[in-house]
């Protein structure tokens, strides 16, 4: 079975010679949950953003759901990838001028050309699963951070993606709101979604991840199974910081 994501020798640098990604190679199997950890500036966000073309590649080869992407960063290939890969950001990035329901149905109606009625029913059904159906007609600014992030997850799911990318989904949340978002991601993983999650949440990594990948200075420095984590020096170091950053 072909892997959902296959990366070979990815290189990306930002101007001043420093490499954000330095020969990164990895693969994500279909149905697998890969958690990416590492200190700030280690390149984990850059890595996950290359997977759907938000960051261009300088070198290397990427294959997402069988769609190849090279250093030429072909716009058409990127668009094909984005149609099948959902993404959730640290800052939610909901559209403030649209209601929750419109936020979710915008792409299904405009990109997938589904009828409005059908798209709205699907959105309401997803919102109910997320436990926030009663927020459908409110606006993003009226919701708490945790609710906004769950809307952002719903918005991505409404397009029926085959892979979900999470870029520090709980880092901008109040501590008491983190759990509700992690719970939503947990049930998503249970349903067999292929997920790549950049996070500092150690509990989530241990419980949900199939593999945990550590990055440092743009390089993959370690890949562990959850049951091997206690032996990992990096894991112990993170634990001693209280799991934060």
């Amino acid at each position: 079975m072909t892997p959902a994501i296959q990366a070979t020798g990815l290189v990306k640098s930002f101007g001043h010679g420093q490499r954000a990604l330095d020969e990164v190679s990895l693969h994500v199997k279909s149905g697998e949950v890969l958690v990416v950890m590492g200190p700030s500036g280690s390149g984990k966000s850059t890595l996950i953003r290359t997977f759907n073309g938000l960051e261009s590649l300088d070198k290397g080869h990427l294959e997402v759901l069988g769609i190849p992407l090279d250093a030429d960063n072909d716009e058409r290939q990127i668009r094909r990838i984005r149609k099948r890969v959902g993404m959730v950001f640290q800052q939610f990035n909901l559209f403030p001028h649209l209601s929750i329901l419109d936020n979710i149905t915008l792409a299904p109606i405009r990109v997938q050309r589904r009828p409005r009625k059908e798209a709205e029913n699907r959105a309401l059904q997803l919102l109910t699963q997320m436990g926030i159906a009663e927020q459908a007609y409110k606006y993003p600014a009226q919701l708490s951070g945790g609710q906004q992030q769950r809307v952002a997850i719903t918005r991505a799911l409404a397009l029926n993606p085959e892979v979900m990318l999470f870029d520090e989904p709980t880092s901008a949340l109040d501590p008491e709101r983190v759990k509700e978002v992690l719970d939503a991601m947990r049930s998503l993983a249970k349903d067999g979604m292929t997920m790549v999650v950049v996070t500092h949440e150690m509990g989530f990594a241990r419980e949900v991840a199939d593999r945990v990948l550590f990055m440092d200075e743009g390089r993959v420095v370690e890949i562990s199974k959850p049951d091997e984590l206690d032996k990992s020096v990096r894991w112990q170091k993170m634990a001693s910081w209280g799991g934060q950053h």
């Binding site: 959902g86 950001f89 559209f95 915008l106 397009l159």
Partner: peptide, 28 residues
Amino acid sequence: RTQHEAAAVLGLSTQQTLLLVVLPQALR
């Protein structure tokens, strides 16, 4: 810029992003 990114990952075209996401907010 993140509004453009959010629209892009949802698969909206440049034109759709402009008309549905950027201009309504900018004019407001």
